[in-house]
Design a binder for these strands. Structure first.
Lengths: 145, 145
DNA sequence: ATGAGTGTACTATGACAGTAGTACAGCACA
DNA sequence: TGTGCTGTACTACTGTCATAGTACACTCAT
């Protein structure tokens, strides 16, 4: 298991960990019931404090993504409802995996243009915001009226 | 002008502001020399503290994205080198805008699948990480050997 | 029963984001 | 020459992230 928090991104490490684990669960890379590496192991691998990992695990349990069993370890929740409302499991994971090629294809194009990782992120986030808001128009366009 | 920091994302507001302004400059939505809204105005619109906006502007000036002229206001730097090394300007903005349809197309597909914004973000970030790392294999796949 | 490994629970500390409030300094336009 | 707008610069305070260190409680395999 190898997660990779980016300490310089401004996003708290424990949040990044949570996101990456959720992603692994959502795509089925981590199967339901599967055991996650121990707190100390993860902390050691990533050279971060065990408390930080513990916090991520605790939050994930609170969200129902994983189950913590004292003395036993951390496990992906059986009826992993992930970040969604109800059950999803394999069917949904399949759906998500099906989108991977499209995502990778886009990223490849962006990389071919010489975009930095930051620029890609901004591009994506920017359009995501546009989607979230009313849609049709950009924030800046709105101003120009 | 309407930027939209997401206070619950864990990313510092001033960083989000910076990202969104950079994005606007990169895509040409904000033209070189154009004036940005005042610190107090932005702070009022977003219901955040003027100091937070000031910090974002200050950092952006330090990065050469904008110019601050006391008493006059904030302006997009003429030879906006953005987050890149040298000049880019209109040519590069054109390139970036050219990619927008592809990005929107992907987002539309993801939305059609009923993905939440969070899931989209994780999908993108996950693949971005994969790209950054050695490529071929996923972190979790690596474990399973 | 023992021991290694697991999660849990504290306390303390440092760094920094963000808020709040105030005052000052420069530019532009009527 | 003002008046109102701009950015600049403080100080103080609160909350959170992350680290560090320690101790405890539970589980599982031997």
């Amino acid at each position: 298991m190898l997660f990779k928090p980016n300490p310089s991104s401004g996003v708290p490490i424990y949040l990044q960990l949570m996101e990456q684990i959720k992603h692994a669960v959502e795509t089925g890379a981590l199967a339901a019931g599967e055991q996650l590496p121990g707190i100390r192991k993860v902390a050691e691998d990533l050279v971060i404090n065990p408390n930080t990992v513990a916090k991520a695990y605790r939050e994930l349990e609170h969200e129902g993504v994983i189950e913590l069993r004292q003395g036993a370890g951390a496990f992906v929740a059986e009826r992993a409802r992930g970040a969604r409302g109800q059950q999803q499991n394999e069917a949904r994971a399949e759906q998500l995996r099906g989108m991977l090629p499209a995502v990778r294809n886009l990223l490849a194009k962006l990389e071919a243009l010489g975009l930095t990782e930051e620029e890609m992120r901004r591009l994506f986030e920017g359009e995501l915001t546009r989607l979230r808001e009313g849609a049709g128009e950009t924030a800046v366009q709105r101003k120009k009226r």
